[in-house]
Design a protein around this nucleic acid. Sequence first.
DNA 1: TATGAATGAGCCTTCATTCAT
DNA 2: TATGAATGAAGGCTCATTCAT
Lengths: 210, 210, 210, 210
Amino acid sequence: MNGSAAGTPREKDEPVRQRLLGAATRLFADKGFEGTSVQEIVAAAGVTKGAMYHYFGSKDDLLREIYARVLRMQTERLDRFADAPGPVATRVYDAAVDVIATTIENLDDSKIFFRSMHQLAPETQQAVRAERRRYHERFRDLVAEGQRTRVFRDDVPADLVVDFFFGSVHHLGLWYHAEGPLSGVDIGRHFAGLLLTSLRPVDGPGPASG
Amino acid sequence: MNGSAAGTPREKDEPVRQRLLGAATRLFADKGFEGTSVQEIVAAAGVTKGAMYHYFGSKDDLLREIYARVLRMQTERLDRFADAPGPVATRVYDAAVDVIATTIENLDDSKIFFRSMHQLAPETQQAVRAERRRYHERFRDLVAEGQRTRVFRDDVPADLVVDFFFGSVHHLGLWYHAEGPLSGVDIGRHFAGLLLTSLRPVDGPGPASG
Amino acid sequence: MNGSAAGTPREKDEPVRQRLLGAATRLFADKGFEGTSVQEIVAAAGVTKGAMYHYFGSKDDLLREIYARVLRMQTERLDRFADAPGPVATRVYDAAVDVIATTIENLDDSKIFFRSMHQLAPETQQAVRAERRRYHERFRDLVAEGQRTRVFRDDVPADLVVDFFFGSVHHLGLWYHAEGPLSGVDIGRHFAGLLLTSLRPVDGPGPASG
Amino acid sequence: MNGSAAGTPREKDEPVRQRLLGAATRLFADKGFEGTSVQEIVAAAGVTKGAMYHYFGSKDDLLREIYARVLRMQTERLDRFADAPGPVATRVYDAAVDVIATTIENLDDSKIFFRSMHQLAPETQQAVRAERRRYHERFRDLVAEGQRTRVFRDDVPADLVVDFFFGSVHHLGLWYHAEGPLSGVDIGRHFAGLLLTSLRPVDGPGPASG
DNA sequence: TATGAATGAGCCTTCATTCAT
DNA sequence: TATGAATGAAGGCTCATTCAT
């Protein structure tokens, strides 16, 4: 018989834990992991230090959870798009639009991801990299499928295409602002369009021949 | 008869200052700005703390100098390529190859640049952003020139094209390793090729139509 | 069954805070504010640095508390004597004896007060000066009352009389030693006697005419 | 054949030394001895650190010189007044006026004297105290002479009278401002008048009997 | 006589974490 | 489940002083 008697159970059961993760995400994105003190996090979450150490083993633990949450979501979504029916070009396009729109919806997560990787404990860091690499390979396999079927040019290694595109994705947190005229999906369509176009078979690697 | 009499005086005139900047660059890239202690920097440079504070006003000052050095170099190089004669596609291609090769040659600088911006004092941060914006605009103007002259597609805003491409550039530090099979110029040619291809006039924005 | 159950809770409720203030007072008086390190204070109080920064925001904060304590006590005592019934000469005499005896009882506070004022933050300094000025004015009004009623000579501005007398008070810390033959009240009676005599109406300002 | 060829020799021979002492005096009075860095002193004097360490053995040495200068001047002046002809009351009065006027003319010296004593090396401190004590005794002997000759009341120890009066003198630095309406001599006459009056023979030690 | 780069010890403060309650 | 006092290590920085020139 706990607090779930009234209100949505999910949000009532672990409100402290969620508030802590939310506050930590916002602060880590704004000021960096090392630039944020545990005191600031618990103050922003409206709890005390003792409470935080009840739910999380350490400050690093908070960061680890944030990474886990991001990776879980990204993997789930990519799987859905990659496993969908339809031509490979469409699947790549849709997955590309989605990853950009999703990244923009969770821009704080993205800011943290590439800025704070080196703060994780070595083993955690390796685990994150491994999971990330699986994600990369999933996307690369899609590209390679397009290359095998002659839908995409094959003079650029598929791995390199993925690094090319995901650079643009990861960079979003450094320039995108919600106040601008373009929504996340707008950006997604533009970027995915550039990606698909860049993969069209070409005559040569140099500057446009025409 | 040492090198300072007639030879290159660079290594003898400011050896301590240069050693400090070098050590700081390496360490900041490896462990982050906040993860690196002044003690570690001076130990790596083989001097004492007092010496560091003789040449730099603070730890922040070291970071500021690193940013200034990067910006100066990047601006100089882009100007050279943008002002060169020849068709706009060639100029964009050459500049794109160069920025990637140069970034890879100075990968530590690149790692620091986008990870530690928020550690700079607000005014310094603004100055860096302003200088960075000028660089962005210089590149964007090249793209826009190509769009005006119908060499490039014009259904994607030139600013967005620049953000798309430079995401890939800035991301290099997160995956490129010198031990791989591809040199900086190799990567540059591949990425610049993808960029140029992505800018070819297209029928529509969706997944490749034909 | 310790003192905190029913006895005086003072020693048990805030032992660390009080020990810190006591140690700081003693050391600041001996070696000056800048000549005393936080390390020395916490060692003398038998706690760690972290504990000190749990109770006080900074080393300056300790000094500020010492000033506040002194000012509170002095103001309270002067008010009591000034508001007492009886002729003005008696009230001035009693207040003068008391301030001297009290100063001698808290000689460390007195040593700190006039030696370390310039170490306070500008705003704190102003607040202390303002409170000190109110004290001065309270005493001055007593003197002025005596001048108006012809009990005291009125050829010396009352403000100047107060500065004259309180110089002697503040100077106590520089020469008084408890080992001497005279108690605080002894000194108080002598100094108050000199003050009262100096205020007797006179023929002229020059050297004694008779 | 040194720089004394042009200009007043005295001021030309040791201009650096004098400028350093002047700058140090001003800064020590403003910010305290420990609150003033050697760098600030040499900057204010317009010389370099090396120059300072050429003329003075240490920062402490500067302070020692300032104390020596003050003591020398005060002793000289008191001697002149004490050894003058005339009644003892007049000599005390004149000496009292002079010490106040002189103190006000050199208020920075006075501020330093009582605030920074504890910064001197133990031996220097003892030497200063000894010299100071000789000064005190010289003045006390004047008072005692007046008591022996029945010009002054003798129910207050002469030593105490001197401590009483010199408290007022030393306190000047804490409240006197040149912008006020009263000159140094004005204050001197008022304070000396209060002193002389306070020394008139009285009926009893208590509050004025009338 | 004067320079200024370099030293090295020490200072104030912050902070993640623990633990008795 | 939660508190908050207390710890202890580490961090950035200042500064009087020295020394080769």
